[in-house]
Design a protein around this nucleic acid. Sequence first.
DNA 1: CAGCGCAAGTGGTCGGACCAATGTGAGCAC
DNA 2: GTGCTCACATTGGTCCGACCACTTGCGCTG
Lengths: 262, 262
Amino acid sequence: MSDMPTPSKDRLPLVEQCTQRLRRAVLDGTYPPETRLPSERTLSEQLGLNRVTVRSAMTHLVAGGLLEARVGSGYWVKDFRRFGGLDLLPVLVEFEDPVPLARDLLAIRRQLAAMVLEQVRAVADEAGSEFEKADRLYYLEDAIAHLATLVDEGATRAELADADLEVIARLVEITGSRALQLCFNPLARVVHDFPALRDALYAEPSKNLVAYKALLRWIQGATDADPAALLKAMAARDRATVTALERSQKRMSGRTSPKRPS
Amino acid sequence: MSDMPTPSKDRLPLVEQCTQRLRRAVLDGTYPPETRLPSERTLSEQLGLNRVTVRSAMTHLVAGGLLEARVGSGYWVKDFRRFGGLDLLPVLVEFEDPVPLARDLLAIRRQLAAMVLEQVRAVADEAGSEFEKADRLYYLEDAIAHLATLVDEGATRAELADADLEVIARLVEITGSRALQLCFNPLARVVHDFPALRDALYAEPSKNLVAYKALLRWIQGATDADPAALLKAMAARDRATVTALERSQKRMSGRTSPKRPS
DNA sequence: CAGCGCAAGTGGTCGGACCAATGTGAGCAC
DNA sequence: GTGCTCACATTGGTCCGACCACTTGCGCTG
């Protein structure tokens, strides 16, 4: 099995491989902004792929804001710092120190979480006592219960992360804010695609769970928890996460140094 | 009328047309979540396009989180509320009331702006007096000056919006936070692709300019402006923007039914 | 030297072809 | 009748070769 020359299983589609390769080439400065990429035909020859495949990859990067396609002129590199989205972050980790990236990311998440709390409270107040029976609240309870089950069973951090995202999704759903929802989704994906951060986030899953349970009680009208305290606890957990990430990075240092000999 | 059978000019690429069409079909519920789309071959026949073209469009939607491709099974619709990004917002405006969308979007922007202010202040304090001469600050001044020129010249709102985004970009750049930068970019694009909101935002461009100038003075160390006041003013302007948007929507009501020539 | 025009190169679109993974149903064994 | 297997039709993934419209730049013409 290990001597298989072409392990057709669990292999990324060629388009995906090509996309990642080109994306990295753009992000690491191989192709700086305002320069032209080799033509589709040239690249397809260099990479040993069909032009259609290369083209599909290029299209992805265009959609992601990394490239601009000009008929008759070629593909031109745009400045990802000005046009890139959060989806670049997991890739960027390979070229920059992940610690500040993660710290800033968590800060953004916290800021948005504050908005969510605010909106949830407003919705809860408006709905009054009927709110407790609302389906959306029930789904939230359900998601938290599921997370609790996984914590008890000692699930992997990846599984915990998915369950956690489910909780957040339900929470955002309660706010009823479409914009907030669409803003959180890419953020959630980043955590999912950023393994080191994900693992650091769930180093102590029980603490996350405690916070969610307190949050749920608050939404239900309990007075033994208030949003300020919740956010403060979240900030503390985030700091611990960054510390954990720093440690894991230091542990791996020496071999993980990004290749930037220039 | 026109004898030209193919008005080759100013026509969107077929892939783009196909992408938009399919995206709308997903967003408006024609293809609900957890259902299967017609196969590539079927769609290419229905739409009169080549399979490669349809396929490219599908790939876009997969990348955007709207679809999932399963070999041998077909394309399956994912719930855009759970997997979509902010880039959907301008399209979503066609199916939902734009006012709450815009209001929530502005609130998010404001929240992130608060973070920017915080970070900028931190950077400025750290750099001390040398900061005033820093290139990044110079670029910010430059962008604001450019915006002022456009305001004086009575430029179109689209031009003003672009100049405004330039200012914001410079501001975010000063913070040095990659994550914040990548988080703001899609947000900026939304404003750019959301004409009604864009126009409402720059109904009174001079007011925006005043705010930016006060912001610049604050960064430079002046004491006649503080971040709390700046954010308060921003909130007031956002409220005015929403009001303007409401008015423009009311004015257009009765004719605003989305054009669906099927 | 200025201006023009043509050819090479580029992305965009097309048609057809084969492959591997999947889903389905007919047919078999029990 | 029930349950299983296996062949087959369907689907997305990849490849090939071709043509089109457009841009660019070089070289020719004046």
